[in-house]
């Protein structure tokens, strides 16, 4: 049985993580416009969250964005590692999520066959 009272225990447990998250950290941004949602963005986001939970990656921020005009390439997932260019992956399927997190988010290796865009963060 889950209840709101469980949150007190979770709060105690999480106190030590707070500082880490407030600093740098990698961002994962998912396209959640109508086009993204129709293409399966919700499942991609859930898969990302599950994978982060399984790997206990606490220093990764998951964000969402609206339609950016590349609807035909949805689901779009951007990965921004601190100090590195923003990489956009297109036509992302749930099976690609593990690869994106293991190769790129953790090890910094861009997955070239999924890339549809690359943007220098300084230019955004």
């Amino acid at each position: 049985m889950k209840s709101l009272e469980d949150l007190k225990a979770l709060r105690e447990k999480l106190q030590s993580d707070i500082r880490v998250r407030e600093n740098d950290g990698t961002k994962i941004i998912i396209g959640m416009g109508t086009c993204g949602i129709a293409a399966g963005a919700r499942e991609i986001m859930a898969a990302v969250l599950d994978e982060l939970a399984v790997r206990k990656l606490k220093n990764v921020q998951v964000q969402q964005t609206g339609c950016i005009g590349m609807c035909e390439k949805e689901v779009l997932v951007d990965v921004v590692r601190p100090g590195e260019p923003r990489i956009t992956y297109g036509n992302v399927k749930p099976v690609d999520v593990k690869r994106i997190i293991a190769d790129h988010v953790i090890n910094g290796r861009i997955i070239e066959d999924l890339v549809v865009g690359k943007m220098d963060d300084a230019k955004i």
Partner: peptide
Amino acid sequence: SYPEIYSW
């Protein structure tokens, strides 16, 4: 956004 919280 904390895994523990969204799992809960």
